[in-house]
Computed example of a mutant assay.
Amino acid sequence: MLKLLLELIPTLALGLALGLRYPLLPGRIAPLLVRYGIPLGVAALLLRSGLNRDFLLAAAFALVLIASVMLLLHLLPPLRRLLPNGALQLGAATGNTTYFGIPVALALLPPPALGAAIAYDLAATLLSWTLGPRLLKSSSERRRSFRRDLSQSPATHGFLLAFVLQLTPWQEPLASLLWWPARLVLLLALLLVGMRIGVMQQQGELAEGLNWQSWRKLAPALSIKLLLLPLLFALITTWLGLPGLVADALVLQAAAPTAISVLLMAEAAGEGINDAAGLVLISTAMALVTVPLWWWLIN
């Protein structure tokens, strides 16, 4: 637990300070990290944990459960009254797994569990770029971009790289060689989250989303994302008797804060931008408390 806090809080704080001081820095770092760093890090973690039955089980389970939650939030009238726009519905179901959840799993879980965390991330990426634009009522052009966005996802690239490398006779030495570079890459990913939030604050994108009225509006989505969604995963994985490491990885990924991609999609659709910005900032800050709490509960 101490290791998690020592990695999360200083890294996010440093990123926030850098984003406020150098607002152009994230734009220079992010393309390199997304194109080369995250795929390499994800591939190294998958080589260490293995592409096995637990990986497929976690991916299928996450895909079904996240899709069910997203559809229920959108279709059930009582839930739609709590979350009146697509940004709130998507933000309540979609977590920042690549840049927040996987570093958390790396800090808290043994290597065999990391594959399940990455499987959750792949499932969430797939759903966020298929159902997400529809929830936000964006144009058909934006819906068509789903294929490009999914194909450009760093998690997808990392999975494909790991799949290819696992077929070679050098899987184990490569896994050992890339282990510490992978950890460094994921710390840089956390740093980028902090920088992105700092830029949002510096540019005033969060100012309108953090008054008392907005807090009341965001409270249901925050409760679902940080409390009810991981609780749902914890209960159902226990009921189904999933392996302990798989269950732990899925719960921790479900507890990740709202994904920054929700804000990007809201900006593209022109709907719920302030709500999405507020969710990203507040959920990330609150996750510094709720994620360690979930780790304590599941243990």
Rank of each mutant, 00 (worst) to 15 (best):
L191Q: 02
W294R: 08
S140W: 14
G132I: 06
L210W: 14
I9W: 14
S68I: 09
P111V: 02
L232Q: 11
P181H: 01
T97C: 13
W296H: 14
E271L: 14
L90I: 09
L71T: 10
L167P: 08
A175S: 13
Y22A: 12
L71S: 11
L288W: 00
L73G: 08
L20P: 00
G19V: 01
S176P: 00
Q213E: 15
V185T: 02
N96M: 12
P292H: 05
P39D: 08
F100R: 03
N52I: 04
W294D: 06
L82S: 11
A189I: 01
D54A: 15
R81P: 03
M70G: 08
A268H: 09
E172P: 01
A58S: 11
S139P: 08
A58L: 06
P243G: 06
L188F: 13
L57M: 14
G95I: 07
R148W: 14
L56G: 15
G198V: 02
A247H: 08
Q203A: 13
A234P: 03
A113M: 00
V64L: 15
V164N: 02
A234G: 07
L5Q: 13
G132E: 05
N211W: 05
M265C: 09
F159A: 03
L4G: 04
D275V: 09
L5E: 11
Q203L: 13
L160T: 12
T258A: 12
M1F: 14
A221K: 04
A207P: 00
L24H: 08
N211E: 12
A277Y: 11
M1K: 11
G91I: 03
L88S: 06
G270I: 09
I118R: 01
T11A: 13
F100D: 01
S153V: 08
A119Q: 03
L281E: 04
A30F: 10
L228R: 05
A105F: 02
L8P: 07
L65N: 04
P77H: 11
L83A: 08
V185P: 01
G37S: 06
L33Q: 03
R53M: 12
R143L: 15
S49P: 00
W296S: 13
